[in-house]
Nucleic acid binder design. Sequence first.
DNA 1: CTCTTCCTTGACCAAACGGTCAGAAACCGG
DNA 2: CCGGTTTCTGACCGTTTGGTCAAGGAAGAG
Lengths: 210, 210
Amino acid sequence: MARAASAKTQTRIQKEKSELILSAALEVFAAYGFRGTTIDQIAAEAGLSKPNLLYYFDSKDAIHEQLLEDLLDTWLDPLRSLDAEGDPVDEITSYVIRKLEMARDFPRESRLFANEILQGAPRIMDQIAGPLKDLVDEKAAIITGWADAGRIAPVDPYHLIFSIWATTQHYADFDIQVAVVLGERADQRFDDAAAYLTNLFTKLLRPSEG
Amino acid sequence: MARAASAKTQTRIQKEKSELILSAALEVFAAYGFRGTTIDQIAAEAGLSKPNLLYYFDSKDAIHEQLLEDLLDTWLDPLRSLDAEGDPVDEITSYVIRKLEMARDFPRESRLFANEILQGAPRIMDQIAGPLKDLVDEKAAIITGWADAGRIAPVDPYHLIFSIWATTQHYADFDIQVAVVLGERADQRFDDAAAYLTNLFTKLLRPSEG
DNA sequence: CTCTTCCTTGACCAAACGGTCAGAAACCGG
DNA sequence: CCGGTTTCTGACCGTTTGGTCAAGGAAGAG
């Protein structure tokens, strides 16, 4: 039994090494998926021996599970803060920017999520069908309310949310492609993307005059 | 040496089995990536024994390589047919629809591509940096030309293309998530997505009046 | 300094993996 | 229905993989 998982109080070393391992594992899982990742790869990335790594986590599964748990805790935060009381267009463009910031600052988490969904979400289906769907339904209702009140143009709220997820996460998941295609302009990709996406969704949502 | 790869004339069985294997391999590679896929998985999916499968292809690598080669041949077709002589908004919305149809009709190919990019495009970097980038540059110039002529609203052509890729491929790569979130409305997802995306990009590109 | 607990390691194991091979079985033109 | 070619299979091989274990080394409280 791994100490880190069962102990009520963690030693300094336990905390440090656990974080080191999780960070290394995130790097590798995000690129190669669960099956494509080996414990040796994670150990090498973390600079530890394999038995030493397994002293802190019971198994490859345990590490992966921990990562997914941590991920889902924060993954939906930007959507959660979409506020029915705010200005509709501002709320949605702010959501877009927060999501884009997450793609910039946590690309490995985005890729881990993408990998999991690509495989059919075998380990997080419950979270998708439960909390995620519930949250989307709740926020979709808010958007529909805004549209009904004429405060934004009529729009399918679900596909709006999908398009926000898709466009923002694209900059993390397909980063290599984006960087290569943009070439020397790649270093401005965040600011340019932010401006482009703000414009895109503002034009979509701005209610027609009259 | 596998017969199928070297023979100049293929027998009926060679053609049938090769296609069977490629289809099965596409299914598995698309979900689990190269490292996460085993030859036994592919063989089971194809209903063949492992040695029998290896009679047609030299190695796991050879199958994967063949799939990527076939994929890149057709992957960029929709973008290639973007026509500088057509109506700008029609050309781009038609491109969006063609891409969305590909996501619907060839989701496994989309996921295979996604998996490859997630891993850093180790096997198709040449294609990305070469033909793909060249084509994007060419079409971006066309879009810029349209904008300069005032025929569409000014827009960053690269991020426009990224957002088209992202939004359309999302329906293939994240299909499980989309299906779960949409629930009973999921069977209309293609038509609804087509309407939503057409509206999204039309509003973005429609030149401001006056 | 010392004893206990925590940390680390090399050696090891069984299962899974990619791939090979000799020969059996099916196919097919004559 | 015969003979050569093509197709298929079980048994096998070396390597990699996930994971274990006994024992040695480092921390740290007293």
